[in-house]
Amino acid sequence: MYHSKITGLGFYVPDNVVTNDDLSKIIETNDEWIQERTGIQERRHIIPGKDTTTSMGVKAAEIAIKRSGLDKHDIDFIVFATLSPDYYFPGPGVLVQRDLGLKTIGALDVRNQCSGFIYALSVADQYIKTGMYKNILVIGSEVHSSGLDMTSRGRGVSVIFGDGAGAAVLSREEDLTKGILSTHLHAEGQYAEELILKAPGMGGRWVSDILADNDPDDESYFPHMNGQFVFKNAVVRFSEVINEGLEANNLQVADIDMLIPHQANLRISQFIQNKFKLRDDQVFNNIQKYGNTTAASIPIALTEAWELGKIKSGDTVVLAAFGSGFTWASAIIKW
């Protein structure tokens, strides 16, 4: 029996900074309105033709592999989490394998949206714990900007999301007091339509239908979110899954050295921080700079917190996420 340990971290965000004031020039909104509701000040959008979901994932992965001290050919498997693949199929996992020039290792794509990175981390953790693989590359990467309704009609969603990628290398750890102690995954599909992108989809409106109708009022291919309903469910599920992870490892809230929540909305993170009575130095948020990058948000935040020296050897680190599906998850890590 083994544990898996994060041995390398990396992230990449596009150079194109989009401020709230920039959005106010094309959408009926303003900096105060956005910050009051989300805490976001700016986000990154790709420059078309320069960055893609895969290329950003590759850049984050290259940094993570270098920091792990491994050669890229030591990687045994890839798990790639995204809701915004370059192609409808194949998924970006195989594209990373190609672009990194890796051997014919397996590549798995995970579609769990905001919870995607923790789901991917959990899959990788199980493979390593059972001895199947020794070093696994886990990536979360998203391009939202090209799929948002950048008009006043879509402002409730479009001001929230940004583009970026984060990556982690998980390696076998024989010391069972270190590494990923446990992961906890949940879903509640009855609320799938409360946070959804309906089209194109094989069970509904496909590309040919959209093109044939040419309906400017068709919103099915833009994200829909029932914001208040999502918020109310998020704060409950965040709390539950954090407590579940702590209880599984006989830990108390006081044992948390760093909580990295999915960067969905700063107000959700602040609610959870207040509920658990955590100090500012026990919670890391960077949604102010990057917006909600869905599956990329936790690895970006985790990497940045580590780079800033906010995570040290021996720390208890908690990851938690909630999002479309609904799905939610947590991971408890002894650094």
Rank of each mutant, 00 (worst) to 15 (best):
I105Y: 08
G106A: 13
A107S: 15
A107V: 09
L108Q: 10
D109C: 01
V110N: 04
V110C: 04
R111F: 14
N112I: 09
Q113M: 14
Q113P: 00
C114R: 04
F117T: 05
I118F: 02
I118G: 02
Y119N: 01
Y119L: 02
Y119E: 00
A120D: 06
L121C: 12
V123T: 13
V123Y: 14
A124G: 14
D125L: 07
Q126K: 14
Q126F: 07
Y127Q: 13
I128G: 01
T130A: 12
T130F: 09
G131C: 06
G131T: 04
M132I: 14
Y133E: 03
K134D: 13
N135D: 05
I139A: 01
G140W: 07
G140Y: 09
G140C: 01
E142W: 11
E142K: 09
E142T: 08
H144N: 15
H144P: 03
H144V: 08
H144I: 10
S145C: 05
S145E: 03
S145P: 01
S146W: 03
L148G: 01
D149Q: 02
M150G: 00
M150E: 05
T151C: 00
T151D: 00
R155K: 15
G156M: 04
V157P: 04
V157Q: 06
S158P: 01
S158K: 05
G162K: 09
G162E: 06
G162M: 06
D163H: 07
D163T: 07
G164M: 07
G164P: 02
G166A: 03
L170W: 03
R172T: 14
E173A: 00
E173D: 04
E173W: 02
E173C: 06
E174K: 12
E174W: 01
D175L: 03
D175I: 02
T177L: 00
T177S: 13
G179L: 04
L181D: 01
L181Q: 15
S182H: 02
S182Q: 03
L185V: 06
L185G: 09
L185E: 08
H186N: 15
E188D: 15
E188N: 13
G189N: 04
G189C: 05
Q190E: 15
Q190L: 12
E193T: 14
E193M: 13
E194Y: 09
L195K: 04
L195Q: 11
I196A: 08
I196M: 11
A199D: 04
P200G: 02
P200E: 02
G201M: 04
M202F: 12
G204L: 08
V207S: 09
V207P: 00
D209V: 03
I210H: 07
L211N: 10
A212E: 13
A212H: 08
N214Q: 11
N214A: 14
N214H: 10
D217R: 13
D218N: 13
S220R: 10
S220Q: 07
S220T: 15
Y221I: 03
P223R: 03
H224C: 03
M225C: 06
N226G: 09
G227I: 06
Q228E: 14
Q228H: 12
Q228P: 05
Q228I: 12
F229A: 14
V230Y: 01
F231Y: 15
A234N: 08
V236N: 08
V236L: 11
R237A: 07
R237W: 06
R237H: 13
S239N: 10
S239V: 05
E240S: 09
V241Q: 10
V241R: 06
N243A: 08
G245K: 08
L246P: 06
